[in-house]
Structures are given as structure tokens and as C-alpha cells.
Computed example of a mutant assay.
Amino acid sequence: MAESDKVFAGSIPKFYDTLMVPLIFEAYAADMAARVAASLPGAVLETAAGSGVVTRALAPRLGADARYVATDLNQPMLDYAATRQGSDSRIEWRQADALDLPFEDASFDVVCCQFGAMFFPDRVAGYAEARRVLRAGGRFVFNVWDRIEENAFADDVTNAVAAVFPHDPPRFLARTPHGYHDIARIREDLNRAGFTGIEIETREEVSRAASAREVATAYCQGTPLRNEIETRDASLLQFATDRATQAIASHRGEGPVAGKIQAHVIVATR
């Protein structure tokens, strides 16, 4: 993973939340919120909370006395998430590294993480930290994207932007968000971290947007793919977005567009 893969700053948080979240994250956030709330947890830790899509879906499902700590490595994303949430005294917003959590052992009933594990530089260490802060019988609920070929828009954008930079194609989407999809490897990493009860479900959804332009803008300007494009040639950001728009329109149509998305949902019990 390149260092720029972890940078969600500048205008990225706003583009991410207004475009990427409804495009690909909301359906999985609703699923995760339902899974976490099902056990009526009294204390929940969310890592890699991003712009807060899971937080917004989960908080209304928790009890009035529940403790909810939402963390992220990127302070700009966390700041944006807090502004979107509104007032809720149960929620504590805290900058934290999922690989080095500032919490005591056995502090939470559930640890949840939506599409963050792919960004962990050491996933076994991250999983071990989640296990450490879980109480006996607690659950670690997280999801990761399946391979990029199973995610239509991400694949379209990656191929289109690669054509703009043929000698040094940006590979953020394939390398990081869609780079950790092997179920056997995920299970092995969890086992190495000490988890034994592991359930993995592959879940397909449909991504929808008002236009191909909206999808292209979301991926090219609302994710760290933007950092890769601008590092190569900042003047080509709009051109790359245009090329991605054309590619999506050629595959999915000119008006409202839809494409397959697919992810693995994992529940590991301590």
C-alpha cells in the first residue's frame, strides 16, 4: 500500500461523503448496523469510521445508555463525520490508530469496522487489537471489498484512468480497497490474531447514481485515487474524470447508471 492510499484530506472528505457514501457504502452500512445492534451491545467501538456512514446508521439502533466510541486515523474525516452526526451524548469521537488502540483490555462488546481493514499496514496486528479490547464472547464485525472485477464502477474507473497514464497507471482502487479479498487469507489472518469463531458471507449489492459523471467524480475526486492522479499531473484531474465518465457511460448508459458491487462481511467472535 502506498503512503498516499491513507490520505483522506483536503476536499476528499466532502466528495467522499456526498458522492461515494450513497454510491457504494450506505447499503453495507445498514447491514453492518443491523448485525451490530442485534446483540444489544452496551459498548461499541468503531474503527476506521471515515465520514460516519455506519455511525449514522448504527447510533439510532443502540440503547439509550450505550457507549459508542467512533475512531479514525484521519482527523479530517473524523471532524467531518462529527458535523454530520448531530448532537448525541453517547458518541465519543476520537482519533486513533486501529493497530494501537488507546483502550483497556475487554472494554467493548462489539468492535466494528466498515471497509477499513484493507488499509491496515499489519492486519493481524489490527485484528489482535480488536480482540484485545473485546470482552469474552464479544464480536468483531467488519467487511472488505471483493476483487475489483466484481465491482463494476471501480473496475471501469481504474481502466479508464490507466489509459490516461499508460506508463505509470494509478492502481489505488485495485491495490488497496480491492486488494484484500481472498477469503482463505482473511480467515488465516483472523486465526493468527486469536479468533476462532469466524463467519464470512459474500454479499452482492447494486450501486446506483444519477449519471456516469457522478460516479466518475466520486471515484476520481472523492478517494485517494485523486492523490495518485495529482501526483502524476494535477492538471489532468478533470481530464481523467472525463475519461472515466466516458468509460462508464459506454458500459452503463448515458442516464441513471447502475453497476454490481460485492463485498465480504465477516463476524469473528472472541
Score class of each variant (00 low, 15 high):
80 Y>D: 08
85 Q>F: 10
85 Q>S: 13
88 D>N: 10
100 D>V: 04
79 D>F: 10
75 Q>T: 05
102 P>T: 09
91 I>Q: 06
82 A>W: 00
88 D>V: 07
96 A>Q: 05
86 G>M: 02
72 D>L: 00
92 E>Q: 15
97 D>K: 01
76 P>L: 10
97 D>F: 00
83 T>C: 09
95 Q>I: 14
88 D>C: 09
81 A>F: 04
92 E>R: 15
96 A>H: 03
89 S>V: 13
90 R>I: 06
76 P>D: 10
92 E>M: 15
95 Q>P: 14
86 G>K: 02
95 Q>W: 15
98 A>P: 01
99 L>K: 05
99 L>F: 07
103 F>Y: 11
75 Q>D: 08
79 D>N: 15
104 E>H: 11
82 A>L: 02
72 D>W: 01
78 L>P: 01
102 P>M: 09
99 L>Y: 03
77 M>I: 09
72 D>R: 00
74 N>K: 07
93 W>G: 11
90 R>E: 04
82 A>I: 01
78 L>I: 05
99 L>N: 08
74 N>L: 06
93 W>T: 14
99 L>M: 14
77 M>L: 14
81 A>R: 04
94 R>T: 05
104 E>G: 13
89 S>D: 15
96 A>F: 04
100 D>R: 12
74 N>G: 10
72 D>K: 01
90 R>N: 05
74 N>W: 01
84 R>Y: 06
88 D>H: 07
85 Q>T: 11
89 S>H: 15
72 D>I: 00
83 T>N: 10
92 E>W: 13
94 R>W: 04
102 P>F: 08
103 F>N: 03
90 R>C: 04
99 L>G: 12
89 S>A: 15
89 S>I: 12
93 W>S: 13
73 L>Y: 09
98 A>E: 00
94 R>D: 02
100 D>E: 15
103 F>P: 01
97 D>V: 00
80 Y>M: 06
103 F>A: 06
95 Q>Y: 15
97 D>P: 03
100 D>G: 11
80 Y>T: 04
95 Q>G: 15
95 Q>K: 14
95 Q>H: 14
96 A>S: 11
90 R>L: 07
86 G>I: 00
96 A>D: 06
78 L>M: 04
90 R>T: 04
82 A>M: 05
72 D>H: 01
85 Q>N: 12
77 M>F: 11
83 T>L: 10
101 L>F: 00
85 Q>K: 10
78 L>Q: 02
84 R>S: 05
86 G>L: 02
74 N>C: 14
81 A>E: 02
98 A>D: 01
73 L>K: 01
99 L>S: 09
95 Q>N: 14
74 N>H: 08
85 Q>D: 11
103 F>R: 03
75 Q>S: 07
78 L>C: 04
102 P>N: 11
87 S>D: 13
100 D>C: 10
79 D>I: 12
86 G>A: 01
76 P>Q: 11
103 F>Q: 04
104 E>W: 06
74 N>A: 12
92 E>P: 12
73 L>W: 03
94 R>E: 05
87 S>H: 12
88 D>M: 07
93 W>M: 14
97 D>Q: 01
73 L>Q: 03
88 D>E: 08
101 L>Q: 00
83 T>Y: 06
75 Q>L: 09
101 L>M: 00
86 G>H: 01
91 I>E: 04
94 R>Q: 12
104 E>N: 11
88 D>A: 08
85 Q>E: 12
98 A>N: 03
79 D>W: 09
90 R>K: 09
